[in-house]
Simulated assay, not measured.
Amino acid sequence: MTILMPLLVAALYVCLNSLIREPHRRRFNAIMVAGAGAAYLSGGGLAGWEFPFVVVLVYVAYRGLESWRWIGVGWLLHTGWDVVHHLYGNPIIPFLPGSSFGCAICDPVIALWCLTGGWSLRDLLRARTIRQPEPEPEAASRTS
């Protein structure tokens, strides 16, 4: 359950986000990654180190307004921050001790989706259902 739930949360995040049309989907995700950067500010346990991380993620999110790659980088940075908090700081959700660990599992899935262009499920399904023309057999294409 410790690993399955964060994977389900990531899948739900991707599915719900794929309902948002572009370019709004990319911009929405840039805002989300900026918010994730500030998630530990109210007691993350790493004192002054929380502020420089927020500054870095705000910059990355700003770049993400026009680039899915930057958003993916932001989620990967947040994954690292989750690991640091799991090992040395306070959990992202104070009453759930393993929440930073779960976030560290969820975030790379979201990052992978972003790094592959933040595609929508609708577009992915449409691309899979379009049939490619079947190639002609070699024998038929040869002339005698």
Rank of each mutant, 00 (worst) to 15 (best):
H86I: 03
Y40K: 03
I92N: 01
N29F: 00
L121F: 14
F53A: 12
Y62M: 13
P135M: 05
L77W: 04
A140M: 12
M32Q: 11
L41C: 14
V54G: 05
Y13E: 10
A39V: 08
A47R: 08
V9C: 04
H85C: 07
G48H: 00
G117E: 10
W81T: 11
V60M: 03
C106H: 02
E22N: 09
L65T: 04
P23A: 06
I105A: 07
D82C: 15
L125Y: 07
T2V: 12
L46P: 15
G102K: 00
R131S: 07
P108W: 06
E50V: 01
T129W: 08
H86D: 07
L7R: 08
W81Q: 13
P6E: 05
I93E: 02
G89E: 05
A30C: 06
V73F: 07
T116P: 00
G72V: 13
V54K: 01
G35P: 06
V109G: 03
Y40N: 05
R63H: 08
G45W: 00
G74C: 11
I71E: 12
W49S: 08
H85Q: 10
P133C: 10
P133W: 03
T2S: 07
C15Y: 13
E138F: 12
V9L: 11
A34L: 04
F53D: 06
P91A: 00
V14S: 04
S67K: 04
V14D: 05
V109R: 02
V58N: 02
Y59V: 14
L125A: 13
W119L: 09
G43Y: 03
P97C: 01
I71S: 11
F28E: 08
S120R: 10
S144T: 09
S141K: 10
G89M: 03
P133N: 08
R27W: 04
L124Y: 09
A111M: 08
W68L: 05
C15S: 10
S100F: 00
P135N: 10
N90H: 08
C15M: 14
L57T: 14
N17L: 10
V54F: 01
A36S: 12
S42K: 10
F95H: 04
G102S: 03
A30V: 07
A38H: 01
W68G: 04
E50N: 04
L57M: 14
N29P: 01
A34F: 02
I105W: 02
C15G: 13
W70D: 14
L112Q: 05
R131C: 08
M32E: 02
L124T: 15
C114S: 15
